[in-house]
Design a protein around this nucleic acid. Structure first.
Lengths: 192, 192
DNA sequence: CAGTGGGCGTAGACAATGTCTACTCGGCTC
DNA sequence: GAGCCGAGTAGACATTGTCTACGCCCACTG
């Protein structure tokens, strides 16, 4: 490991690790500082408030998700619909593997803390989805932004409700994949 | 007002009111007790832990949402698709008017607290949706549970991402209604 | 009717948390 | 070399969730 990264990065990394191992409830400012090996006042030099630190951790989560998506798209076939499927798969896997981070990323009080860095995170993801939807040319007669928005929302809702635990109970499924497929097919048409 | 309801109900009502006026961050156990006019130890006689109290408040939110939906369906036309539209409208309005309660209702740590009362809340809503989808008979060749689940997820994702603030920014819309319509049409077909 | 037991609320303690304010210390510039 | 400033430490403070001891009052039993 690199011993010489700044404390700011170490705090974000320690928070992400803590989130992964102990869950969102363990993300106190003092515990993060402890894991980073500094006193409880040290984070204040880099983040004005606790929420700002959490927002930075969520930002790292968005960066991670973005990296995974671009990596997956690089290896995906050219047909737009297949690329949407690849994106959706990564999105669902991310939410399933890192539920704590996923929850943190979409907490609304993190935006309200006036963190502009987070404000436009997630928008590149949406722009990418608009491009894919435009290329897929669904014949629903709607603006691509609306179709892309509804598609994202469907995908997001599936993984959210799945993590929440009601959908597995209600549908009897043990995997969200059929629901993700239903969402994509509903908006972009069947696979062929 | 009835002066003689039990403290349990008064705590839930005070919490819901506090949630409405001050937001989710203000929902501390002690503040709820203060608003209910009792000492900070009193809630413990009715709720073992803070999370249990929050779960009860969320349960009241589910009951409220259920009431609004059944009231709306009573006045809705008979065509299944129109009934789904009515349900979706209520759902979206609820999320927009009571964002704090909506967020609380879907917090996942509330379920993990082993509250069985909350565990099956929301399932009647889903069963209702399955019935409506079955009656609407979409020709997607999927089990009604899957279509209903994907539909609920789409609806839920729209209002969630809308409250989150990214969708308005990304789509340029100032109302989630077109997205809700896109979701319903995608899963149940056009209005005619 | 006396007594008693338990439900229900109070009051105080405790550890932990987020924020604020000295203070310290090391390296930098003039 | 003197001053200064960024960065981390240490302690204080109010607030929170939980726990425990206590008191009250009403219903039931003998």
């Amino acid at each position: 490991m690199e011993p010489d990264q700044g404390l700011r990065e170490r705090l974000v990394a320690a928070g992400a690790e803590l989130l992964r191992t102990e869950g969102p409830a363990a993300l106190s400012l003092r515990e993060i500082a402890r894991r980073a090996g500094v006193s409880h006042g040290a984070p204040r030099r880099h983040f004005l408030t606790h929420l700002d630190l959490l927002a930075a951790i969520a930002g790292a989560g968005f960066a991670d998700l973005g990296d995974r998506i671009t990596a997956s798209l690089a290896a995906a076939p050219d047909r737009p619909r297949d690329r949407v499927v690849a994106l959706a798969r990564v999105y669902a896997r991310f939410a399933a593997e890192e539920p704590g981070m996923f929850e943190l990323m979409f907490r609304q009080d993190l935006l309200e803390s006036g963190n502009l860095g987070l404000r436009d995170t997630g928008l590149p993801l949406f722009a990418l989805l608009v491009d894919l939807v435009t290329a897929a040319q669904p014949d629903d007669g709607r603006p691509a932004e609306v179709t892309a928005g509804a598609l994202w929302a469907g995908l997001h809702g599936v993984v959210q409700l799945w993590n929440w635990g009601r959908l597995p109970l209600a549908t009897g499924l043990e995997d969200p994949a059929p629901l993700v497929d239903a969402v994509i097919t509903a908006h972009l048409g069947a696979a062929r």
